[in-house]
């Protein structure tokens, strides 16, 4: 049955409607998880608040395991879903750049909009910077366009690249994620003991 759009159950004209609904749901979850606060977010880097890691890992493993079951039940055809193409080096560099921006700004692009939505000044400033950055990137794109598209591995998954069956990847990832939940809880406790200037 699913995916609905490639199978023609929903026409592609609904793309934007669905995008808006998904965007609202995403924003709601970000805000409900407390991601509109820069302190909560950068807590990951200082070790006093791992809620970002927990929320995203939970979403990830639930979706991953859920998709495998849906595929098995025949509700969804996993081979038809879109897989983001992998550009190895550009993605690593991009990840580093984004991480640095994350620590300095206290938001990632998505959460900065939830911060704007609840009227946070730091969020507004961050968003202005975001658009400024997009502008510079677009203008300077010819300088590093070749690098941007280098190392194209195509739309590969870990299963394609290594040959490990998808269910084993999901299993391994779930174990790692769950271990991370409990590990970070202890880290959090120890760090928070020495903190006085921030109330939880």
């Amino acid at each position: 049955m699913c995916p609905l759009i490639p199978n023609g159950i929903i026409s592609s004209g609904w793309d934007f409607v669905i995008a808006i609904i998904l965007g609202m749901a995403f924003g709601f979850i970000l805000e409900a998880s407390g991601f509109s606060s820069a302190r909560n977010i950068v807590g990951v880097f200082y070790g006093y608040n791992f809620v970002v890691l927990r929320v995203f890992f939970t979403a990830l493993i639930v979706a991953m395991v859920g998709l495998l079951y849906f595929d098995y039940f025949g509700w969804l055809d996993l081979s038809k879903i879109f897989i983001l193409p992998t550009y190895l080096t550009p993605m690593i560099i991009g990840g580093v750049v984004m991480g640095v921006g994350f620590i300095m700004g206290g938001f990632c692009p998505g959460t900065s909009f939830t911060a704007v939505a609840i009227g946070k000044i730091d969020g507004i400033v961050f968003t202005i910077g975001l658009y400024f950055g997009i502008f510079i990137f677009s203008e300077a794109f010819p300088l590093f366009g070749d690098f941007y598209t280098s190392g194209d591995l195509g739309n590969v998954t870990i299963t394609d690249a290594t040959g490990i069956p998808a269910s084993w990847v999901a299993m391994g990832f779930t174990v790692v994620a769950l271990a991370a939940f409990w590990g970070t809880m202890f880290v959090e406790k120890r760090v928070r003991k020495n903190m006085t200037e921030y109330k939880f």
Partner: peptide, 11 residues
């Protein structure tokens, strides 16, 4: 046969 490079969004 190539796997296509499509423009993709970030988060």
């Amino acid at each position: 046969r190539k796997k296509t490079a499509a423009v993709a969004g970030g988060c």
